[in-house]
């Protein structure tokens, strides 16, 4: 049975091969040329951000793992519980506008109500010194864009893809049942964890269904144009908005270069067999 301990310093999962207490990630980092600014941390670490300190609230920031138009996500260690989490903050920090803060909290509250194995769960929501943040599961793995790029379009790849679609569709269906519409479902917002399970993240454009029903006849439905399902490209009446992501459920896998991700027959077989999820 492989050892699944995590490094106390950086959170890297130490598998059976890690000799003694030595963490391979930390060992490799020791070889990097020191930052010319004199920081102890390297270019990937939290010290490179102008808006945060290496230690924030109950969290020790380890490295930046994602950055979008509004938010930045760090791999962090929650000191009180000694666990590795993903910590999301507003990019503008204390300079964030009221609208940015409101959208940030909508995202946090939307996900906080979702408990599903294929959705990245939120642990904590808070504010420290005007900096809003929430912590969530740290998913050890890659996003779907990168996973697909390794596909060789063999039978095993098709089966895996079918399993991903199944998990994603179930999660989106569940979210809709809870009244949450993601509105930005795309490969880079789907993380594939160490157990090859898809985990939906980044609900930054999400809306509660009751809000969408009131407003989506005027609002842009959100997300990139390339990721929109057919129904999302037209200004549909409010009541149909919840169907859009379901229509698009196969789409995150269709955006990779190459042949269609799942030949129909194989997809059917996989679903009937449980989809490998």
């Amino acid at each position: 049975m492989p050892d699944r301990r995590a490094c106390e310093r950086c959170g890297t999962v130490l598998k059976g091969y890690a000799a003694g207490r030595l963490c391979p990630t930390c060992l490799l980092r020791e070889g990097l040329t020191p930052d010319p600014r004199g920081d102890e941390t390297d270019a990937m670490s939290a010290g490179s951000s102008p808006h945060v300190k290496a230690s924030f609230a109950d969290y020790e920031l380890l490295e930046e793992i994602a950055r979008g138009g509004m938010g930045v996500v760090y791999k962090a260690r929650q000191k009180s519980l000694n666990r590795i989490v993903a910590l999301k903050m507003i990019l503008a920090g204390q300079l964030a506008t009221k609208t940015q803060v409101e959208r940030f909290r909508v995202e946090a509250e939307a996900v906080a109500n979702l408990q599903h194995p294929n959705i990245v769960a939120i642990h904590d929501i808070g504010e420290t010194d005007g900096q809003h943040y929430f912590s969530m599961d740290y998913v050890e793995g890659r996003n779907l864009t990168k996973v697909i790029s390794d596909f060789r379009f063999q039978i095993s790849d098709f089966r895996r893809a079918a399993g991903y679609v199944k998990g994603i569709a179930e999660a989106i269906h569940y979210a809709h049942q809870q009244g949450i519409i993601h509105r930005d479902l795309k490969p880079s917002n789907i993380l594939i964890d160490a157990n090859d399970r898809p985990r939906i993240t980044d609900f930054g454009l999400a809306k509660r269904l009751e809000n969408a029903e009131r407003r989506t006849d005027r609002d842009w439905p959100g997300g990139g144009l390339a990721e929109l399902p057919p129904a999302g490209t037209s200004r549909r009446p409010a009541g149909r908005s919840a169907k859009r992501p379901l229509l698009a459920r196969g789409h995150p896998l269709s955006s990779a270069d190459g042949p269609p991700p799942i030949p129909v027959g194989i997809a059917d077989d996989a679903f009937e067999a449980g989809g490998g999820s």
Partner: peptide, 17 residues
């Protein structure tokens, strides 16, 4: 390329790739 190679391998080991 030494630092770039190290950064690449760090990403591999830490699961970022």
């Amino acid at each position: 390329e030494v630092d770039d190679e190290l950064r690449y391998l760090i990403q591999v080991i830490s699961g970022a790739r």
